[in-house]
Amino acid sequence: MDIEFSLALPRDAIGIPMVRRVLGDALRSLGVTEECVSDLLLATSEACANAVRHGGPANRYQVQAAIDDWRCELRIMDRGHGLTAIPQQYPSGETENGRGIMIMQSVVDEISFDITPGSGTTVRLSKELDWDEDVIAHHISRDRQLVAV
């Protein structure tokens, strides 16, 4: 199984729930566990929020997803000024911003950044998929019934 899709969104927070819906529905329909889906949605939401907040002057950003039998890989790309540095620790409790990268790191297996100052940032998130055995068994049973007909 190989599924790929790409979304081009306005640089506005209104698009983040759409990304969550499309990605979440795709993963759930394949039989990925809810915990794994939640981790991917949290990381993706954080990356999209950063693209919305820091992706100017461009008015759009893009999300690309690739799902196979083992992994989900996401790329969130903006055309902003680019990060100057990746934080190495959580900010203090009084700080309102700056936790997104650390949150993403805590819920995915791999995270990387392709930063081109003045041209944008691509965040790559990758997570090994955990499968819901009950959903998989249901799909196999249904597929066998379809083949028998």
Rank of each mutant, 00 (worst) to 15 (best):
I3G: 08
E4G: 14
F5C: 10
L7P: 09
A8E: 08
A8K: 10
R11N: 09
D12H: 04
D12A: 08
I14Q: 13
I14G: 09
I16K: 13
I16F: 08
I16Y: 09
P17C: 12
M18D: 04
R20H: 02
R20I: 01
L23P: 13
L23E: 05
A26M: 10
A26I: 05
L30I: 04
G31R: 05
T33C: 11
T33F: 06
E34V: 08
E34G: 12
E35T: 13
C36K: 08
C36S: 15
V37M: 07
D39Y: 00
L42R: 09
L42M: 12
L42Y: 04
S45C: 11
E46M: 08
A47S: 01
G55A: 14
G56R: 10
N59K: 15
R60G: 06
Y61L: 00
Q64S: 09
Q64H: 05
A65R: 07
A66P: 01
D68C: 08
W70F: 15
C72Q: 00
L74P: 11
R75D: 07
R79N: 14
G80R: 02
L83W: 12
T84L: 12
T84G: 11
A85C: 14
A85R: 14
I86H: 03
I86P: 05
Q89N: 10
Y90P: 07
P91W: 09
T95W: 06
N97S: 15
N97M: 13
G98I: 11
G98M: 10
G98S: 13
I101M: 02
I103Y: 07
M104Y: 08
S106R: 08
F113R: 12
F113E: 09
I115H: 03
I115A: 03
T116E: 09
T116W: 01
G118P: 14
G120V: 12
G120Q: 11
T121K: 01
T121P: 03
T121R: 00
T122D: 01
T122F: 01
E128P: 14
L129T: 07
L129Y: 06
W131N: 14
W131G: 15
E133I: 07
E133Y: 00
D134L: 14
L146I: 11
